[in-house]
Amino acid sequence: MPVNGISTSRSAFLIYGGLLADKEIQRGKMELKINGNIKEVEEGITISDLLEEMKTPAIGIAVELNREIIPRSSHESTVLKDGDELEIVKMVGGG
């Protein structure tokens, strides 16, 4: 099974690979709270990466990071951290 294969090779790295492999193992996933839901994402992604992954609409969305609005111009430069809380909103039908 491929899963076992990866697991074995990772263990092997852990045992023999030293510092470099160690880093490799630590680099992985982190958890964000997005719109009240926990989502696991790649560590170190930016808001832009996240929006792309989520396929959010190109227009009419806004992002709040830990209750602070992050302007669109800063989405690319804002790196997310484990435990960050985001609100991502869009425009829907309303009266």
């Binding site: 997005i34 719109n35 009240g36 839901n37 989502k39 989520m54 396929k55 959010t56 609409p57 227009i59 009419g60 969305i61 806004a62 609100e87 991502i88 909103v89 869009k90 425009m91 829907v92 039908g93 309303g94 009266g95």
Partner: peptide, 30 residues
């Protein structure tokens, strides 16, 4: 008028109102 609501994070195929009501054509009143 439009309402401001959370993006559905589990459905990335959800349609977007603004693709139907063009903000260039109408004044959007959130």
């Amino acid at each position: 008028t439009v309402a401001v609501r959370r993006v559905n994070i589990t459905d990335d195929k959800e349609e977007n109102l603004l693709d139907y009501v063009d903000p260039k054509k109408y004044t959007i009143l959130p």
